[in-house]
Structure formats: C-alpha cells, structure tokens
Amino acid sequence: MKLTRSIYLTAHNATSRLCAQRTLISTLAVAAFLAVWELAPRTGAVDATFTSQPSRVIAAGWDIVTSGGFLNDVSVSLAEFAIGFGLAIAIGVPVGLVLGRFPFLRNLLDPPIMAIYATPHLALLPIIVVWLGIGMQSKIAVAFVGGVIPILVNTTAGVRGLERSWIVAARSFCASSWDVFVKVILPGSLPSITLGIRLGLSRAVLGVVVGEMYQSQAGLGNKVMRYGSEFRTDYLLFYVLLISVFGLAATTAVRVFEEKLWTAGK
C-alpha cells in the first residue's frame, strides 16, 4: 500500500515537470509570433495597412481606452452577454434535468430541440431583430438561444448517462426523490452540465458579437464592424483581442467553478 502511494507521487512529479515544459514552449511560440508580426511590415515584406503591428494595436488600444465611449461599449456588450447567457443557464440546466428524468417530456420536446440545435443560431438573427429591434434585447435573445441549447442537450445527456446502480444504492439507504436528486443526479451530471456551459458560452459570445456587427447602436461588435469598414486594422484588432481575452477569461472561470464544485463534492 505504501508502494501504491509512492507511485502516485512519482507520477505527480513527472506531470508537473511536463507542465513546466509545456508552458515554456507555448510562451516561446507566442513571443516568436509577435516578433514576426512586428518585424515583417518593417522589412517591407507585407503591408501594415492589412496586417497592422503589435505596437500599433497597443497604441490604438491606448487611444480607445482613454477617449470617451469605451466603457459604454464594454458595459453594453457585457450586459447583453451576462443577461442572455445567465438566462440560458437558468433555464437550460433545470429543463435539461427534467428532460433527463422524464422520458415522456423528452420524447415530446426532442424534435424541436434537435431542430434548433441543428440550425445555426445566427441564422435567426434577422428575424430576432425584426421582433426585438436593434437594441440590447435582440443581442440578449441571440446569446440566449445560442447558449441554452448546448446546455440543455448536455444536461439531459448527463442525467441519462448516470449509472442506474448509483440511484439504486441511494434508494437502498432510504433516499427520498429529493435526496436522489441532490446527492446523485446533480453531482453525477455535473461534468456534462459544465461541458454544456462551456460549449454554450462560446456560442453566446458569438451571438452577442455578431448580433452587434449585424445591427446595433453600441458594443464591441459594433466597433469591430465600424473600424473594419474604415480599414483601421489596428483599432479593429484591439477590439478583436478584447473579445478573445473575454472569451478566454470566461471559459477559465467556468473551469475554476467546475473544479471548485468537484472538490466541494469530496
């Protein structure tokens, strides 16, 4: 038994060494990319009008942040995302749990859900704008539609994938239906739920940004579209970078949340 534990420890040390190696390689790759990007236009090999340069993007970023209106764009986009995606979680998870438990409802709702899942949610943009106008509501709706379906579908799959024996074991200890739900179904389907949330997240971000690019008065997507049509690559890229950073941060937040929940279950 001592032996088993020392094997685990050795494996753990090896993993952390591999991890450090991977970080080093990734950092070098990013640095090399930035260097090429900065230097290529200086040699005349490419035209900076099309590619811009890291230094110009940083300068554009400073200009954007210090001039007015930036905070308004950020808060509009963030609010659209937070409300739309928040609703997607608040509705997708409970509905998914219910559908996972009740085959009748699942059979009833499966065709429309699959139809919406197969449809690119961005194709619904024009009609959503017709219904809700070019304000924040239409972006909230697109973010919601994009986010809710993967969350719902994965939650349902998670509940259906639970081992029957876990539920039988709980019942053998006199568990009520509520106990089974709280102690088996919810923690057992948590990996699928968070997977759905991660998948839904990128679709919701996409919905907000493309929605703003399509028809809007403010927001990050609105600015991307504007600077794109004005050929101001450096300004455009700063906004794109901002969106990427946000997407990355949000995905990481979900991962951390997932790990927190997982360890809480111990």
Binding site: S165, A170, F173, G265, K266
Partner: peptide, 25 residues
C-alpha cells in the same frame, strides 16, 4: 443495508465520503 456487485460507489466522492453516503441519507 445492501452491498452491490458493481460496487455502486459515487465516483465524485472520496473513500470517506462514500462511506458517509448512507449515513447522510
């Protein structure tokens, strides 16, 4: 109390938490 053929342990619970499972319920 029942002991199952396929163990029926909760994979998200540690050994101690699995043993505690029936007591909690």
């Amino acid at each position: 109390a029942v002991v199952f053929q396929d163990f029926a342990l909760m994979p998200w619970r540690s050994v101690i938490a699995n043993v505690r499972f029936g007591l909690e319920l």
